[in-house]
Write a protein that binds this DNA or RNA. Structure first.
Length: 771
DNA sequence: GCCATTTCCCTTTTT
DNA sequence: GGGAAATGGC
């Protein structure tokens, strides 16, 4: 009996097909990690491949760690020299060794999103661009997408043609890259693109790695972007032993540049590829799978497949309609409590949601009812002010050219070096082409800076160089303590924070120090750069400890790749999930991505799936009236239980509507006069149509997703018609140009007097007829 | 240069 | 409702 006998036929095929390109279409819960780990074991033990020649790439450190552990269990530690790591970790490792060949220094810094935004804002300011039109976040997203596609600033400028915005973004993009390079820094995208650049410009480096990695495996292949595809293609070009594993139905990172075509067209790029489908699911019950299948089959852009199991039907899915988010939270937490009372463990349960903001009301109830929990994601630990301050000191010590770090700490704590002085120094640096730190050193030479101010700057420089000297002898942990002492950080915090907040921040710093100590204990060759790199590349979910007996709370995105006996999908409301953005988007594939996210959520559940919605939810301080998520309506009624664990029966149809009508009448925007709302967040409102808990037949799809709107006269339902004057809370007054029925909602086109022509859905637009 | 107040934007998801 | 940037007064 060998370890391969426990695999099913398709899984075995995946394990044994070691030579040539292989596409493994692995549905949720079909045992793909098992195939990958057994494949590595098979290569090492049966094919006598040196582990040194194996590269396995994942997206998260957690997945990499899990794979490493499982491989070690199968073949022992002898596979230690195989690279099993994330895209980013692998690329950083390569770049630390060879990046000098493309003009960076090996001790480059990694910039996070905050640092990126700082650079973008600086560039926008430098070019005197209107930040109302060029929002830093939007510009950054545009640049980031370009990088994912390996588009250079020159490419972008050429493609822009007469498009002024695009031209300007290209200009910012060029400046942004210049600044990154001046700071000897890479952003997340650069980590991939610069590796591609290194490979394409230095053939001997590429050849070295091609030679080395004879067998390459890529997990979650549906989430790769164009740059990552290029990287993998380059590495695999020599031996062509490339095995990619993924599921197009679980592609949920388009917003981050993932290109589903990589998996859909794999056979096009590698015509000799062997394709293996894994459709047997070992995780969930048939009812859960049927629900997942019913939802995902509404997507058009996908490879057809259908999950099945021989585990039996299992419990029906539960669906609860609550009056408010608070009731929903109470319902979920008390249900967990009851379950634990019946012998379940806390860590059998996970609560998933679309947006991080939803964790708040849940958290309150967990605290109130004394149920242990952990929230993953949300405010990043490394995004906290105090952590960023300390890290900026470390970065400045490690890489003198890191200008974002220098600018962050030069006046933290207050040293009397303000923006005016800093601007003067920046200009000097630019004029003399010498870098910010060099300009600081020479600030005595800058005529416009007074003696007194120059002395302060020199004091800073002296302190940093002293710290640099210490860094050579001290551990990272000791160095952080030195810094905190030298700059009297706690006193600085006490100046404007309350004592408890100071204590809180100092606790966070202690945690950072512990992480530094842990890093130094684990790393083969600990270094300051290494620590900063590890810190930059971790995700919150990486720290998940399955053995901790607490309930896990996280976004649907974070939940990918995980499984739990009991899963709660909370906030199943149209406008929340699918998100408002996706619902109103012109691009129908946005809605398909949300549906895939729903599919991911459903398939996390092993035994019990509990979905819920709140008819009223507070979003950004405003109460929103919500209707049931269209995804819930896509699940045939036969899979859904009528009652759920005795918490609450799904509210009868008529009641929902009656209750909603009453509520709506009381809402501020429905009162006759005096709307107090100024923001444009008209997310979800009462006009039009309410789905309640009604469920559609599986064959009946919302017309709106098919994109075949039927024109209809609709004045009665909406209270306005084409040609009428209407008022929108954000866009002001306008004339209705067109109303088109989209099956479940009306799509209204309005020519606004000042805001231009907008297309919107009636139920979200809160349009009011005016005379 | 510093501080308090106002204004803005935000919330879709993250390696 | 909240946090961070911009503004304006000292």
């Amino acid at each position: 009996m060998s370890i391969y006998d426990t695999l099913n036929e398709q899984q075995r095929q995946g394990v044994f097909a070691t030579e040539g390109p292989v596409l493994l279409l692995a549905g949720a819960g079909s045992g793909k990690t098992r195939v990958l780990t057994h494949r590595i074991a098979y290569l090492v033990e049966e094919k006598e491949v040196n582990p040194y020649n194996i590269l396995a790439i994942t997206f998260t450190n957690k997945a990499a760690a899990e794979m490493r552990e499982r491989v070690d269990n199968l073949v022992g530690l002898e596979a230690g020299s195989a690279w099993i790591m994330t895209f980013h970790a692998a690329c950083v490792r390569i770049l630390r060794r060879y990046i000098e060949r493309i003009g960076y220094e090996n001790n480059f810094t990694i910039y996070d999103t905050d640092d990126q935004r700082t650079l973008i804002r600086d560039a926008l300011k430098r070019f005197d661009m209107d930040t109302k039109i060029y929002k830093d976040k939007a510009v950054l997203a545009q640049i980031s997408r370009a990088k994912d596609e390996l588009i250079t600033p020159d490419d972008m400028e050429l493609a822009a043609g007469q498009d002024l915005r695009k031209k300007n973004v290209a200009k910012v993009y060029r400046e942004y890259q210049r600044q990154l390079k001046a700071s000897n820094a890479l952003d997340f995208d650069d980590i991939i693109c610069k590796t591609v650049e290194l490979f394409t410009s230095c053939s001997e480096v590429l050849e070295y790695y091609q030679q080395r990695f004879r067998y390459i495996m890529v997990d979650e292949y549906q989430d790769t972007n164009t740059a990552q595809f290029k990287l993998v293609s380059l590495l695999a070009a020599r031996h062509r032993n490339l095995c990619v594993v993924g599921d197009d139905d679980q592609s949920i990172y388009k917003f981050r540049g993932a290109n589903v075509k990589n998996i859909l067209e794999f056979e096009h790029f590698f015509p000799e590829a062997k394709v293996i489908k894994l459709e047997q699911n070992y995780r969930s019950t048939q009812n859960i799978l049927d629900a997942a299948n019913a939802v995902i089959r509404n997507n058009i852009e996908r490879k057809d497949k259908r999950l099945w199991t021989d585990a039996g039907a299992g419990d029906k899915i539960e669906y609860h309609v609550y009056n408010s988010a608070f009731e929903e939270a109470y319902g979920i937490v008390s249900d967990i409590k009851k379950d634990v009372g019946n012998g379940a463990a806390y860590n059998d349960h996970a609560v998933l949601y679309r947006t991080n903001a939803q964790s708040r009301s849940l958290e309150e109830k967990f605290v109130e009812l004394g149920v242990p929990y952990k929230i993953y994601g949300g405010v990043n630990f490394y995004g906290r002010k105090e952590i960023k301050d300390v890290l900026a000191y470390l970065k400045t010590i490690d890489n003198a050219r890191d200008e974002v770090a220098i600018k962050r700490i030069i006046n933290v704590p207050k040293r009397g070096i303000g923006t005016t002085t800093l601007d003067k120094i920046s200009i000097y640096a630019q004029d003399n082409d010498c870098g910010l730190y060099a300009a600081l050193v020479r600030c005595g030479e800058i005529p416009s800076i007074s003696k007194a101010t120059a002395a302060k700057v020199t004091g800073f420089v002296t302190m940093i160089s002293a710290m640099r000297a210490k860094a050579r002898e001290l551990s990272v942990k000791e160095l952080i303590n030195e810094i905190l002492n030298d700059i009297h950080y706690e006193e600085y915090l006490s100046d404007d924070d309350e004592p408890e907040e100071v204590a809180d921040r100092m606790d966070n710093i202690s945690e950072l120090i512990s992480k530094a100590a842990a890093y130094e204990a684990e790393a083969e060759v600990p270094s300051l750069s290494g620590f900063l790199e590890e810190v930059a590349l971790v995700a919150d979910i990486d720290g998940m400890d399955d053995s901790n007996n607490v309930v896990s709370l996280m976004t649907l995105h974070s939940a990918k790749g995980l499984e739990f006996p009991v899963v709660y999908l909370s906030g199943m409301e149209d406008g929340n999930f699918p998100s408002y953005m996706a619902v109103t988007s012109d691009d129908k594939s946005d809605l398909e991505e949300e549906r895939r996210l729903c599919y991911v959520g459903i398939t996390r559940a092993k035994k019990r799936l509990v979905m819920s919605m709140a008819k009223q939810r507070m979003i950004r301080g405003e109460v929103m009236i919500c209707k049931s998520s269209r995804f819930v309506n896509e699940i045939p009624r036969e899979y859904i239980a009528e009652t759920g664990q005795g918490i609450r029966k799904p509210t009868p149809f008529g009641d929902v509507n009656a209750a909603e009508e009453r509520l709506r009448a009381e809402l501020p925007w429905n009162r006759p006069s005096g709307s107090i709302f100024s923001s444009g967040s008209s997310r979800i409102s009462g006009s039009g149509y309410s789905a309640g808990v009604k469920r559609r037949q599986p064959t009946e799809r919302p017309t709106f997703t098919k994109g075949a709107p039927v024109p209809a006269a609709s004045e009665e339902e909406l209270g306005y018609a084409a040609g009428d004057r209407v008022r929108h809370i954000k866009f002001g007054d306008g004339t209705v140009a067109k109303i088109v029925s989209g099956g479940r909602d009306f799509e209204v086109t309005v020519d606004f007097d000042t805001a231009g022509t907008k297309k919107m859905f009636a139920s979200f637009a809160k349009l009011v007829k005016i005379d």
